[in-house]
Design a binder for these strands. Structure first.
Lengths: 156, 156
DNA sequence: TAATTATCTTACGTAAACGTAAGATAAGGA
DNA sequence: TCCTTATCTTACGTTTACGTAAGATAATTA
């Protein structure tokens, strides 16, 4: 027995977001609740599920526009014409972008880990690879691979 | 033989970014080139490496503030006191956040893939799981696991 | 040297994704 | 019914990460 009359305040606290955010997505055409005769918004379980995925996507950096495009996929995909083809193509692009981003995040993650080793494990030695200090530093040879350290080291 | 006198226009086209962006990072204290006596900015290879990593991080959604914090790690990590400890803790938080984000992206990626199967492979049938249509649809049983489809389906 | 072309500073403009305040109704409890 | 709390619309404010224009100076090319 699905509850179909969540009010906006309930929804907001349920999903740990703000009332303004929910209304904003409505302004943007992403979430259209039904209304009571007096105008109060009512949300069904499906609205909540939909809002949940919208929140997940925005949290990952998807723009409203990008989310709107994904939401429009079904509509277009049923036509079987040119726009349907374009939608397929678009979805593949989204997937490629996500793949790239995952790889970049993994790469950054490795670099941060290595940088952490260097900074904290090198016994206070934070010399740059080109420096003459700490020639026997055990993590010394790692340094060249850590592009992130270019951010950490001062410019001379 | 490292070139140490790149001018801002060269740097911008080299890294496919804008002059304004480079100057903005300088305003924010992230990249401080040397100057000629007349005031023209000059960038070394190290400046370029540093800018490269800054651009990678911003592209991934890191804020200037977050990048600044990472850049301050060395300074603080050498003190060996409380703030050094906090920096270590901060780095771990960053890593955890990145890990979470990777997992979320992978999850979304799987969902998009599945949704693509459903939408394009179901021979034009885009009914919701609760619908009576297409009872023999081979991808039907996948549907419940695809939270993303809540975004694609209309609210009834 | 003259004429482009690039860079400088200053400063206002912009888009996205909401925050926040005001004044008016609506809904729910005592 | 009265009072308090929630929701409504309208609309201006805010932050981040730059874009863009103006007027002046510097560097490069003919």
């Amino acid at each position: 027995m699905a509850k179909n009359n969540y009010k906006i305040g309930e929804v907001a606290s349920l999903l740990a977001t703000s009332i303004r955010t929910i209304r904003y997505y409505e302004e943007e055409g992403l979430l259209t609740p039904i209304r009571t005769q007096r105008g109060t918004r009512l949300y069904s379980e499906h609205h909540i599920a939909r809002l949940t995925i919208i929140l997940r996507l925005t949290k990952l950096g998807f723009s409203i526009e990008a989310i709107r495009k994904i939401a429009e996929i079904r509509e277009k995909s049923q036509t079987g014409d040119e726009s349907s083809f374009q939608m397929e193509h678009h979805l593949k692009e989204v997937l490629d972008t996500i793949g790239d981003q995952i790889r970049e995040l993994e790469s950054i993650s490795v670099e941060i880990n290595d940088a952490r080793d260097v900074i904290s494990g090198c016994n206070g030695c934070s010399n740059r690879p080109s420096s003459k200090g700490c020639p026997d530093c055990p993590v010394r040879k790692k340094l060249d691979n850590i592009e992130l350290l270019n951010l950490v080291w001062d410019t001379e």
